[in-house]
């Protein structure tokens, strides 16, 4: 308890005494978190939009022959072995004919001369919906195409491919901005703490001479890093929320954005981002204290 009180008061004193030199670090942390969180938010919302779009997404596998129950079971087994699916429907030639007829409505008479089994039997597969359904669907269709007795696999290939490319691009941007967040935050913090320590070299030496423990010297720097990380991430996320609210208010109901309902990060996600920034900053402090203090 005494230790905690001592390091907390030491941390507070450090922050008060060095806040000017820490401003640059704070701005860098804020910007890094803002950039990362912005792209992550776009990515999350794009996935959500994709999820809405693929509510009706299904793969239709056209077969050469009408499968008997044993073959149906074999197909089912192979499909489920590859990926989780919501539902698998086998559509016979006759059922396909009936559906087609129904779709033609008043034009049904064009089918009078055509045999009832002219359409191929098919399997309709509804993939289990998840955040990466779109990325999986392409692989799934390739797999299905390789099964014996399959004529053709059909799905909304064009829009799925485009959307998949968009999601891939977003994923790369999120990854890069995440890397940027990690590098800038930890390096900036390490640099800033190093400068602070060099400025206070005499004080740190004296602390050693009067018998301060390694923890007594180090922990305030970790806490300082963690606090700056929390403040920087808090400001960054606050700014993003402000931007998000403004966009929502300004563009709601107009054009493409009006088609989807965008949402901000959930409470736990916000907490994770803040904790991540705190850990990165504390990590940056740790490397500096290790290099300079030799404790």
């Amino acid at each position: 308890m005494k230790f905690l009180f001592a390091v907390l008061s030491q941390t507070w004193r450090n922050i008060i005494e060095t806040w000017r030199s820490q401003l640059l670090s704070l701005v860098t942390i804020t910007l890094s978190v803002l950039i990362f969180a912005f792209f992550y938010l776009v990515y999350m919302n794009a996935l959500h939009a994709g999820d809405l779009l693929n509510n009706d997404l299904r793969l239709i596998v056209y077969l050469e022959e009408q499968p008997d129950p044993a073959l149906q079971e074999e197909y089912r087994h192979k499909i489920e072995k590859f990926d989780q699916v919501e539902k698998i429907d086998f559509v016979s030639r006759l059922a396909a004919y009936d559906r087609f007829k129904e779709q033609l409505n008043e034009n049904q008479d064009v089918l009078q001369e055509i045999p009832h089994d002219f359409l191929p039997a098919s399997i309709e597969i509804y993939p289990k919906r998840s955040l990466d359904t779109l990325s999986r669907i392409k692989l799934f269709s390739e797999y299905l195409q390789s099964l014996p007795g399959v004529l053709k696999v059909q799905y909304g290939r064009e829009w799925v491919d485009r959307f998949y490319s968009f999601i891939q691009l977003l994923r790369i941007i999120v990854f890069l901005s995440g890397a940027l967040l990690i590098l800038t935050t930890s390096f900036m913090m390490a640099h800033s703490i190093r400068l602070t320590m060099l400025n206070r070299k005499k004080e740190l030496e004296l602390l050693r001479l009067v018998g301060a423990s390694a923890h007594y010297i180090r922990v305030p720097f970790f806490l300082e890093g963690a606090i700056l990380g929390a403040i920087g991430a808090g400001i960054g996320l606050g700014a993003l929320y402000f931007l998000f609210s403004w966009i929502e208010l300004r563009f709601s109901g107009q054009g493409v954005p009006g088609m989807f309902s965008f949402s901000f990060f959930s409470g736990p996600s916000v907490a994770v981002i803040i904790v991540l920034a705190m850990l990165l900053c504390a990590g940056g402090s740790f490397t500096s204290t290790r290099k300079i203090l030799y404790l």
Partner: peptide, 18 residues
């Protein structure tokens, strides 16, 4: 060593004040 230093008082020739 740090434990021991806490129990020793040293007045340095160059004072070592901040």
């Amino acid at each position: 060593m740090q434990d021991l230093r806490r129990s020793i008082g040293v007045a340095y020739q160059d004072f070592k004040l901040l």
